[in-house]
């Protein structure tokens, strides 16, 4: 899965967790927090994404991502690492 696909996955899950974001035009620099996702919502979005990616990493490691683009990049680097 490339970074763009992971980004699409995160934004799809964001729309599922917070229905009013379904039609939102997501940017790579968008922050889930700024879009109104609380900590429970954000963890849910990350967990759903990891499940589809079949990636098993500590959730606490995803805390470093400041926006959706960074989160996609971080999950991508972890998935590449996991395959290697």
């Amino acid at each position: 899965m490339n970074k763009e696909e992971i980004f699409a996955l995160i934004t799809k899950h964001a729309g599922e967790v917070i229905p009013r974001l379904e039609q939102h035009d997501f940017q790579w620099t968008d922050s889930l927090r700024a879009l109104g996702a609380n900590s429970i919502d954000r963890s849910e979005i990350v967990m759903m994404t990891l499940e589809v990616m079949e990636l098993d990493i500590p959730l606490a490691e995803t805390i470093r991502a400041e926006n959706i683009g960074e989160l996609a990049a971080l999950l991508h680097s972890k998935s590449v690492g996991a395959q290697a």
């Binding site: 900590s39 429970i40 963890s43 967990m47 500590p58 606490a60 995803t62 805390i63």
Partner: peptide
Amino acid sequence: GDADLSLLSYLD
């Protein structure tokens, strides 16, 4: 504290 980190650590 960092509420996000605490939540994620709890889940892990």
